[in-house]
Write a protein that binds this DNA or RNA. Structure first.
Lengths: 351, 351
DNA sequence: TTGAAAGCGCTAACAT
DNA sequence: ATGTTAGCGCTTTCAA
């Protein structure tokens, strides 16, 4: 007696089996208080026996909502994972599901995720760092619920949860300058990313304020990879005189810098100070432990989801939340080394 | 003239605008060859102008498929990310989408993802490491399309793409033994994870084969974290005599081991050899670079997705694909240190 | 080549 | 307290 049971049970199956209407079965599942307890029990029992699972597609079609949010990142680095975890916490609090997708730095794939929302697969997307606002907004009517995390999307006014990248860059500079460094180089992020530019600008602004020339060393623009950091540092080390301190726009590049410094047999934190950005796990894991600008990743995610929820309820528009950053001082930065005196501008050489 | 355009356009809107039936519009979009070219063009033009996006929910309801696959992992470690990337490659080749979710080691959350499939949100799930087969299979009728990646699911016969964890453990042991080590300790993975047990067993089997006692040192069962590895190693270092080589069941614990060795001011690769497992990025990044058992993560993902596709077409059942592993020798293992001679069993002491 | 109509599984008015 | 009915947006017979 091969019982054919290949199909998922539906409320119709349950209704038929009990001689009830589908409406009653639906109510038993979603608004049990409306039913006579006995009926409710009977329905639930059969539902359980049949292994019933509500068809969320059908429900979504009817309700016009999925209670699903997509988190879209550019890559799958551990950094974004931390943001995602924060999103999840908030999502779970409010009965939403979250799934993660990534674009591999292909700008148009951001749009594809938005289309998924337009297609009813999710209620909204949290975009952690966006590439191309113009392409995003164009040809998308209406614009699906969208919140920007980590950085604002240029030219697009959507709820945003970010950090002040400019100020964070300035913090890095102040740390180094406060330690007495004057020959300071920076390794920036990708030139097209506005958050990379902001960090860079904040950094340079602070250098100028301290009377230093931010272009004394070439500002190398990297791809956030360890390899790039290493190569860049080799270049910087070849300068005469070499810098005594380096700011790398993320921790991975900073690790590359450290590798190069080690290879050059210089002492980290003494001959050369290095500060990173993000405070990823590798920062405290690497040896020596990396001084870096802490970014509250999980909080970024958490508040992004909260904003999304508000947006979905029609409560919020274009609001910007800025989370604080701070330098975490560990082992890779120290006082500027004593040196044969280098003249500051306008200062006279001793006789 | 505030144009109200809050709703996504539907085929109905397009049909109305052109005085066509929804059927024709639908065909223009999905089976254009059936239409008079001119009509097709008109439909496409309006669709484009209205920013039309097909409602995948509705289509899914009708077609009973989503072309979406969930990849479910226990945690969001970089290791699983690599597997996910492999899945994506295969998915894209065949016009599927993939989204990633994780269970935070909560066994029942695996079931929730399966329920999502039963609920029509996705066509199947690729489970990268499963906790509880029994709970998984119970009360789920019919069983949604499922493939196991990385390890087989005990007691559940589903398509599987894995490595031979037992053999991989044996490879680690052979490497150490081949280097002349005889005082070898191991730090195993979580006791409930069968893949952890398998690695452990393979390792011990090989030790016995070489006449060594695998329980000479306590086998510590950890949670795959760096901290555990470090603590475990401190324990092992306190033994007299301490081991000259250690096998850690993943790279993170191995890194913890290395930290402890450094703190003890012993030389890695000379006083103590350490071998890890997985060959994650940190393995080649850490200093010194970690010798480890390479696991083909991306391939694991890629083939899992291929299996899923086959399963969805009704082509495959219970097939198991085993991918090869191999020791990658780097800097943390070396010849066993010369020592005051320790007698092998039955060997006479010199007079 | 196109249209009418049914139906995927569910929920919510609106009856009763 | 429960049933009837319409409809979410789409695809697909079946007819014309």
């Amino acid at each position: 007696m091969a019982v054919k049971q290949a199909r998922q049970a539906t409320i119709k199956d349950i209704a038929r089996e009990l001689g009830l209407s589908v409406a009653t079965v639906s109510r038993a599942l979603s608004r049990p208080e409306l039913l006579k307890p006995e009926t409710r029990e009977r329905v639930l029992a059969v539902a359980h026996r049949l292994g019933y699972q509500p068809n969320l597609i059908a429900r979504g079609l009817r309700m016009q909502e999925t209670r699903l949010i997509f988190v879209v990142t550019r890559s799958l680095s551990p950094f974004f994972l931390d943001v995602f975890r924060g999103v999840e916490v908030a999502a779970r609090e409010f009965g939403y599901d979250v799934l993660m997708g990534h674009t591999e730095y292909i700008a148009e794939r951001e749009g594809l995720f938005l289309d998924q929302v337009a297609s009813g697969r999710a209620d909204g997307v949290i975009l952690v760092t966006s590439a191309d606002a113009v392409a995003l907004a164009t040809r998308r009517r209406p614009m699906p619920p969208l919140v920007a995390a980590l950085e604002a999307i240029d030219g697009l006014s959507v709820p945003t949860v970010c950090i002040d990248h400019t100020e964070a860059g300035a913090q890095a500079a102040r740390h180094l300058i406060g330690l007495g460094h004057r020959r300071i180089a920076q390794i920036a992020g990708p030139g097209q990313m506005s958050m990379a530019k902001d960090r860079s600008e904040g950094f340079e602004r602070e250098m100028r304020r301290a009377g230093l020339d931010p272009s004394a060393y070439p500002v190398l623009s990297g791809d956030f990879s360890i390899d790039f950091g290493e190569a860049a540092m080799r270049t910087l080390l070849a300068a005469t005189p070499p810098p005594t301190a380096v700011f790398a726009a993320n921790d991975e590049m900073a690790v590359g810098v450290l590798q190069a410094v080690k290879q050059a047999r210089l002492e980290i934190g003494r001959d050369i100070s290095v500060i990173g950005f993000n405070d990823q796990r590798i920062a405290s894991l690497y040896e020596p432990q990396l001084t870096t600008v802490h970014v509250p990743t999980a909080e970024l995610g958490y508040h992004s989801m909260r904003q999304m929820l508000r947006l979905l309820r029609g409560e919020s528009t274009g609001e910007v939340i800025v989370l604080p950053t701070a330098v975490v001082e560990r082992q890779t930065t120290g006082p500027a080394p004593a040196e044969r005196p280098v003249r500051a501008r306008g200062e006279k050489a001793p006789v």
